[in-house]
């Protein structure tokens, strides 16, 4: 029985966002939307740019944690379009920011993305959010 799970780097995703839309206090928490205006992603097997039009729906909860809900379109440098969604947990008090991305694509070269699960480490840098994403092998 295999108990060890291995990982390998999938991509580093950098996002650029515009002014937030403060929805405010909802039944789920305090909702803030971060519109994504662009960005880039780069890994050994794929690289390209993040198209404008996606976003991150961030809900702040009473216990000091945030949940994320992102929806993006990636365009590879050879023209493949990849639909990317991810949820995640951010807990600043414990410096914990982890995500679980998913991918959908029709581009045959990138079909491997449809068959994998991944986990990411998020960081808020001065230039914007950066996600270091690894494939779960």
């Amino acid at each position: 029985m295999s108990h060890t799970i291995n990982y390998r780097p999938l991509m580093v995703l950098r996002l650029a966002t515009s002014a937030t839309q403060e929805i405010g206090s909802t039944a789920q928490g305090t909702l803030t939307i971060f519109p994504v205006t662009g960005g880039s992603f780069e890994g050994e097997r794929l690289r390209g740019k993040v198209l404008a039009g996606g976003g991150d729906w961030v809900t702040a909860h009473g216990n000091g944690t945030f949940t994320l809900d992102l929806r993006l379109t990636l365009e590879t440098d050879d023209g493949g379009l990849i639909h990317m969604t991810f949820t995640g947990v951010r807990d600043d008090a414990n410096s914990y920011f982890r995500t679980v991305p998913r991918f959908e694509t029709a581009a045959p070269k990138y079909a491997f993305l449809n068959r994998l699960l991944a986990v990411g480490i998020g960081e808020i840098r001065s230039e914007g959010p950066v996600h270091i994403i690894e494939e779960i092998l």
């Binding site: 108990h3 216990n63 947990v89 986990v119 779960i136």
Partner: peptide, 24 residues
């Protein structure tokens, strides 16, 4: 592979509300 998430109201296990997990 699966990605479990947990929700609980019990204080002894509230750490589960704040974590991401990976399962084989």
């Amino acid at each position: 592979r699966t990605l479990p998430r947990f929700e609980t109201a019990h204080p002894a296990y509230s750490f589960l509300n704040r974590l991401i997990a990976v399962a084989s």
